[in-house]
Amino acid sequence: MLVLGIESSCDETGVALVDAGGPGVPKLLGHALHSQVRMHEAYGGVVPELASRDHIRRVLPLTHEVLRQAGRSLPEIETVAYTRGPGLAGALLVGAGVACALGASLGKPVLGVHHLEGHLLSPFLGADPPQFPFVALLVSGGHTQLMRVEGVGDYELLGETIDDAAGEAFDKSAKLMGLGYPGGPALSKLAQQGDAKAFALPRPLLHSGDLDFSFAGLKTAVLTQARKLGDQLEPRKADLAASTEAAIVEVLLKKSLAALKQTGLKRLVVAGGVGANQLLREQLNAACAKRGVRVHYPELDLCTDNGAMIAMAAAMRLAAGVQEANRDYAFDVKPRWPLDELSAAP
C-alpha cells in the first residue's frame, strides 16, 4: 500500500511516499522538503499569510519530485494523508485542500494526521526503530511533552509545558542575543564556543516533583543577564548561549529520566526539532546507558517537520486498525489539537 503524506502545518512544505505493503515497518520511498526560513528571516518569525501562499506554490512540484524519486506514478497512490493539526490554520488548509482534491481526482481515500503523532512515530523511519511501549519526549516548536506510548493511538500525557516550550526558549533567547531567525540552531552552534557554567541561569520546575515544564522564567533570566552585560554582551555571547542551552537540556534530561523511573519503562523516544540538539543527545545517551535504557531518535533530516512522518503515521494507523481512510472529501483542520485527544478506537 502506497501512502502519500503532505505536511504544511507551519513554515515547511513536506511531501513523502511510504510503502506500507510489506512486512514490518513501512518503508520510505522518497521525500522532499522546502523550508521557508529565508522568506521569514526578514520578519524575525513566521508570517502566517506568507507561509500559506508559499505552501500553495510548493506542494505540487514537491509531489512530482517525490514520485520521480520513488519511480512511481500518481495512479499508484492508494491513500493520501495530510496534516490536519495542530498548526497555522491557513497553512493547514493548503495541505488538507490539496490532499483531498488529489484523493478525489484519483478516487482514493484520504486521512488527516495529527502533526505531533507524526513526530512521535518518526523514529520508526530510522535504522533503529523502537518497540512499544516507550516514554516519548516530544520537543517540537511550541510543544514540550512527555508521553507514555503503549501503541499506535494509545497515548497518555505525563507532563507538558505550562508556558514557553523548549524550542521557544531556544528561539526567544537567541533573539534576545541578536542571533536572528531561526534562533535555536544558531544558539546551539554558538554555544559550542562558550562556557556552560559562566552564568547561573534557572532550571524552572526542575524539582517540582511532577513532569511538567516551564521555560518562560529562563527566557526572562536570559534577558536580565543580557541587559546586565550591556556593552560586554558581544564578547560574552557564546558563554550566555552555552549557559542557556545547558539549562534547557538539563531540564529535559532530568524530566525524561523521572518519567522513565515513574513508568518503569526502559525505552525512550525523542522526537521533534529540539531532538536534533547535539548536547541533548549526548547527555541523554550517557544517562540512559547507565540505566540500561534504549534511546531512539529520528534521522537528523527528519527531526524538523516533514512529509515522511505524516505518511508514516498514516500507514501505521491504518495497519494497526485504529483509523480508517475515507472518501468523504469534505475536510476541516484543527489548529489546536491536544495529542492525548486521539482515540485508539477503530
Rank of each mutant, 00 (worst) to 15 (best):
N277E: 06
H296A: 12
P235M: 12
A276M: 05
G87W: 10
L233F: 14
V135F: 01
A344V: 02
V333D: 13
D154M: 10
L157C: 08
T63W: 06
A241Y: 11
A325N: 07
L4K: 09
E117Q: 15
V3N: 06
D305S: 09
A259E: 12
S243P: 12
A104L: 14
H115R: 02
F170N: 03
F213Q: 11
D328W: 01
L92G: 08
L60W: 07
K219H: 03
L4F: 05
E250N: 04
Y181Q: 02
A200R: 14
A20Y: 04
P298S: 15
A81R: 12
F213H: 04
S188W: 02
L157V: 05
R336N: 13
V15M: 05
V149Y: 09
A99G: 10
D171W: 06
F199W: 06
A91F: 10
A246T: 09
D239P: 11
E324W: 00
S105W: 09
A289M: 02
T304A: 13
R68G: 08
E341S: 13
L93K: 11
M316H: 01
Q36H: 13
H115P: 03
R294Q: 15
V25G: 04
A320Y: 02
A311D: 07
G217W: 09
A330L: 13
R267S: 15
E117H: 07
P61Q: 04
M316S: 04
G118C: 03
A20Q: 04
S35Y: 04
E117A: 05
A20S: 15
D154V: 14
G167P: 03
K175S: 06
V293W: 13
I248N: 03
R58K: 15
C10D: 01
G292N: 11
H55K: 03
V37D: 01
L33H: 13
L201F: 09
A308N: 05
R267E: 13
A242E: 12
A308G: 08
K228L: 14
G103P: 05
L50F: 01
E324G: 12
F134C: 09
H34G: 01
C10V: 03
P204I: 00
S256A: 15
A166I: 03
E245W: 02
R148D: 07
L137E: 08
A311Y: 06
D301S: 13
R336Y: 06
G209E: 11
A325Y: 05
Y181V: 00
L2C: 06
A226P: 07
L4I: 09
L29P: 10
R84K: 14
P48C: 10
D19F: 10
G126N: 10
A345Q: 14
V269C: 11
R281Q: 14
H143I: 05
P204D: 05
S105I: 00
P235Y: 15
K108A: 14
T304Q: 00
K266I: 00
K219F: 00
L67N: 01
A330Q: 14
